[in-house]
Computed example of a mutant assay.
Amino acid sequence: MIQGTVRSFVDKAVRPNIAAWFEEGVAPRELASELGSLGLFGMHLTGYGCAGTNAVSYGLACLELEAGDSGLRSFVSVQGSLAMYSIWRWGSEEQKQEWLPRLATGEAIGCFGLTEPDFGSNPAGMRTNARRDGGDWILNGAKMWITNGSLADVATVWARTDEGIRGFLVPRGTPGFSAGDIHHKLSLRASATSELSLQDVRLPASAMLPEGRGLSAPLSCLNEARFGIVWGAMGAARDCLNTALAYAGDRVQFDRPIAGFQLTQAKLADAAVELSKGLLLALHLGRLKDQGRLRPEQVSVGKLNNVREAIDIARVCRTVLGAAGITTEYPVLRHANNLESVLTYEGTSEVHQLAIGQALTGIPAYR
């Protein structure tokens, strides 16, 4: 029922508009209330107005959202698995009461500031810092490639302190804090991607997430979001395959539909096999997560495989559409462009290979 509800929403509210949003490079803020009314924000969390669904249900929602567009799934994923999860898992009761109910309904938007201009795969090198000043904290630094940044009413910002890496909640309008959109993107164009600037931002002691200490805290949030990507990438791949199947059945060359040619069928068959394998992997990982048995390296397996295969499916399906495949009339190249970003964010393929390699050998090879 959850999957069907999300698919219906995407069909009615997203598909008729997404090509224009992508071409114009706009992220429609007005979708937030509709997504919130469906209970999609933080849907796998419990309490504070969150739906409390299981992991497989959340994965199915991500599948349908990304079948519409990766930017839509990113919007929901960052809101629920990064911004909300960071507060739900590491915040104080007061912080949870203040922010989670509003974030759950979409009345408020959140973002998650970890990546910096010079530190992506190596977040331990972050330069953003926070120092005590009496009872307050003073933050200075910059964050880059932040989804929802310019839309956000509150940002979870991770900074280096004398006590190690800590998280802080920075509300919109705080003096010294600003967010600007990154323009000229060729991918995730229907998504707000921003740079955060913090210049002598003064925050009360109550702004710090009291339970989140060290780099493991933000990385735990990323693991939640990566799980959604495992499912979401397969949604984009499924939409590409369905588009190619429909086009191949209608497109006639040499007096017959191109779906009847062996080379076309080989492409479609290979895509269907990889899609089915990816969906089964996502389902297996979802069931492990619901049992409390999912390990981070297993999420890396899912993210590495499913995004890599989704991009390949999108590219092959584009060849089935021929020249028509490069226009926004069809979703295939839009999905392919979006998946280039999905391949990179929340852990590049290389980093996930190293995470798996460490799990296999016991030897970290990051340095």
Rank of each mutant, 00 (worst) to 15 (best):
A248S: 15
G228F: 13
G249Q: 10
N242Q: 00
V230I: 14
R238E: 11
F227R: 09
S206D: 13
Y247R: 05
C240W: 03
M208R: 12
L215W: 01
L209P: 05
N242L: 00
V230C: 03
D255M: 10
A248D: 05
S216Q: 11
L198Y: 13
L241I: 06
A217Y: 06
G212A: 14
T264G: 03
M208F: 02
P210E: 10
N223P: 06
A248M: 07
D239E: 07
A248T: 13
I258N: 01
F227Q: 09
R202L: 04
Q199H: 12
W231S: 08
V252P: 01
L222Y: 08
D200Q: 15
V201H: 02
M234Y: 04
A207I: 08
A236K: 08
P204R: 14
L209Q: 11
L215H: 00
R238M: 09
L209V: 05
I258L: 14
R238P: 03
L209W: 15
A207T: 05
L209G: 10
L222I: 15
A246H: 15
C240R: 12
E224T: 02
Q262V: 13
R238G: 07
Y247V: 08
A244P: 04
L219N: 10
L198H: 10
M234H: 13
R256P: 03
A205Y: 07
G232I: 11
G260S: 06
G228W: 13
G214H: 04
R226A: 09
G235E: 01
P218G: 06
L219P: 08
I258F: 11
R256E: 12
G260V: 01
L222K: 07
E224R: 12
E224L: 02
G260H: 05
D200P: 01
A207W: 04
A259I: 15
A225E: 07
W231I: 06
T264E: 03
N242D: 00
